[in-house]
Design a protein around this nucleic acid. Structure first.
Length: 603
DNA sequence: GCCGTTTTCGGCCCGACTGTTTTCAGTCG
């Protein structure tokens, strides 16, 4: 059986072709085209193989007829003759060295040639040895410093600096907020903002980047490096500084005068692709963008016009301000332009935390003898916390009682007991709390697609959340069948943490999303956006897809303590990055409407 | 090689940094 390359393997192949072209001196735009296509495929929501099956490869932006035909050959035969010709005569080892930070195509090629590195398996260790023996510094174009930098790069590569080291968003935000509060105490500070992925609220963050507008840059930078948790000052210059904290995290500061702050904020917020699209668009209007502002390209001497705010910057380009969460070049620029021209399909009115009227996935400590971990607080404590958040309703969704430990009747009794407790709460005159409780349950979908609870117990519930907690290894086809079977029961309203991913720990299982979306749309099931910080699941790109297809979602905290309820906010940021509006999110509905839907009525 | 509400041909993002250099090439974000 032939190996079907997945998206990251296809992307890698295209990157290697780009690198090969760079060495052979190919046209720079062709090189850039391969790089763009590689990145697009790496970030695509569907597997390239599936798009190929449907003849839709060129729907990936950056993939045109040429690359599509090469990939066609790849999927049919497992190889691409044209690519083999391009890479012929180049050492395979050079493509491995591209993983070393600081080494690009030309450097990798030169090192392989001069040091006679041919074995791809041992390329990195051979390079390391050569550097330690001083054999790199003597090569023309290299020196002591670059030899040392290569060793640093190899070290970083070995530590897996790229991925495992990323922080989840709430953790990075907490660090940033502490530093921002500290910086605001410095005299002369007018404004502070996070930058980069942190400001765009990406699910995982590499470095923490921060911007400050101040009339006194030098004082601010001195203030910054004295931040109490600083372990080491990595770098300090006139426009910024980098420190590393005692927790090992790196923080970059950029300082700018108030008059230039808007352009800088825009530039360093990114994303890279958003900025590239913006610049190429501006260029068509004869404008050149940079971190300092906008200038006309027609005359050499034209001065740069600066911008105090991002709003003015975007306005100067003929569009409305774009929320940072949307800046990924996935259509937000076009939408902003349409909006500025008064046309339909402008920027979305993103759902807000204050739109959320209830939480439908959380765990109390009610003794239901669950299959997985239970919550720590009582139903009453959870309800009281919900009221302080302004919620109208709450869905208690403990895990189902473990099947192996209980008889059918025991399970029924446990669920009956919880139902009675909730009914009593709802009708109680004693506490009279203005919040409605729903009797829910989080139910495992077993590997054969059946639910881990007897059928007649489902009737006791207001609704069920079906989730996967085991058997992650099924292939895509079986997993999809399993999920759809699990969701089929009329009492199951929500598909919980749908991809099963744990950030920094594991990838999700494989699903045929086309089928899942179609099913949920047809049978009015809600996809959960689980707000738990290391889940954030659905991921933003699938939220976007759900929005496009009219599939409703629900944002839930998955709280196990009363304090956890505020995690909701992270789910909202994911929804925002997926372009979700209030109408896309079920728990923005008032209590009466939710109740009606759960009873099986239309809204 | 890709792409199109100023183009199906003629364009294609910008600047900083770094190291090794006498004026620049490579890498990065």
């Amino acid at each position: 059986m032939k190996n079907i390359p997945n998206n990251s393997q296809v992307a890698r192949l295209l990157k290697n072709v780009a690198a090969a072209y760079e060495v052979t001196g190919e046209n720079q735009f062709r090189i850039a085209a391969y790089d763009r296509a590689a990145v697009a495929i790496e970030h695509a929501t569907s597997e390239a193989k599936d798009l190929w099956d449907d003849g839709k490869l060129t729907e990936i932006p950056g993939v045109g007829p040429n690359i599509a035909s090469h990939l066609d050959e790849l999927f049919r035969t497992g190889k691409v003759k044209h690519f083999e010709r391009v890479m012929k005569g180049l050492p395979l080892a050079m493509f491995v060295l591209l993983d070393v930070p600081g080494i690009g195509a030309k450097t990798a090629y030169k090192l392989c040639r001069k040091l006679k590195i041919t074995d791809a398996q041992k390329a990195v260790s051979q390079l390391e040895l050569a550097a330690k023996q001083g054999k790199i510094a003597v090569i023309e174009g290299f020196g002591e410093k670059s030899q040392h930098d290569i060793l640093d790069g190899i070290k970083a590569l070995k530590q897996g600096k790229t991925k495992e080291n990323r922080m989840v968003l709430p953790y990075a935000t907490a660090i940033a907020e502490e530093i921002l509060a500290y910086l605001k105490e410095c005299p002369g500070v007018l404004r502070t903002d996070p930058l980069g992925s942190l400001r765009r609220k990406v699910a995982t963050i590499g470095d923490i980047d921060i911007a400050v507008a101040t009339s006194e840059p030098a004082e601010l930078i001195d203030w910054f490096i004295k931040f109490p948790k600083t372990q080491k000052v990595v770098e300090k210059g006139p426009t910024g500084a980098t420190i590393s904290l005692r927790n090992g995290r790196q923080v970059d500061l950029r300082v700018q005068k108030p008059d230039l702050y808007g352009a800088m904020l825009q530039y360093f917020t990114g994303s890279k692709h958003h900025n590239i699209k913006l610049r190429s668009l501006a260029l068509k209007k004869g404008l050149s963008l940079s971190e300092y502002g906008i200038k006309r390209v027609t005359s050499n001497k034209s001065r740069v016009i600066s911008y105090k705010t991002e709003e003015e910057f975007y306005q100067a380009l003929g569009m409305d301000w774009i929320p940072p969460e949307l800046r990924e070049d996935t259509g937000e620029i076009e939408a902003a332009l349409r909006q500025a021209q008064g046309k339909p399909d402008g920027l979305p009115q993103l759902v807000k935390l204050s739109d959320i009227k209830g939480d439908l996935h959380l765990h109390s400590n009610f003794p239901i003898e669950e299959s997985h971990d239970s919550g720590v607080n009582t139903i009453l404590e959870m309800a009281t916390a919900a009221i302080s958040l302004g919620y109208e309703y709450l869905g208690l969704t403990e895990h189902n009682p473990s099947q192996s430990q209980h008889s059918h009747q025991q399970i029924k009794n446990l669920i009956m007991a919880k139902k009675e407790a909730i009914d009593q709460f709802n009708s109680s005159r004693t506490h009279n709390l203005p919040v409605k409780l729903f009797n829910g349950l989080e139910i495992d979908i077993k590997t054969d697609g059946t639910l881990a609870i007897p059928e007649d117990c489902l009737d006791l519930l207001d609704y069920g959340i079906a989730s996967i907690h085991s058997g992650f290894g099924l292939n895509r086809e079986r997993m999809t069948a399993r999920v759809l079977k699990g969701l089929a029961h009329s009492k199951i309203k929500i598909f919980g943490h749908p991809t099963g991913r744990k950030l920094g720990q594991r990838e999700g299982y494989e699903l045929d999303w086309d089928k899942v979306f179609a099913f949920c749309q047809k049978y009015h099931k809600w996809l959960e956006i689980n707000a738990w910080p290391d889940r954030l699941d659905l991921p933003d790109i699938l939220v976007r897809e759900a929005v496009k297809r009219g599939v409703k979602m629900v944002i839930n905290s998955d709280a196990h303590t009363k304090e956890d309820l505020i995690m909701m906010t992270w789910g909202v940021t994911v929804a925002q990055r997926g372009w979700a509006q209030k109408a896309d999110i079920a728990n923005t509905l008032a209590c009466g409407k939710i109740e009606n839907i759960l009873k099986g009525g239309d809204i």
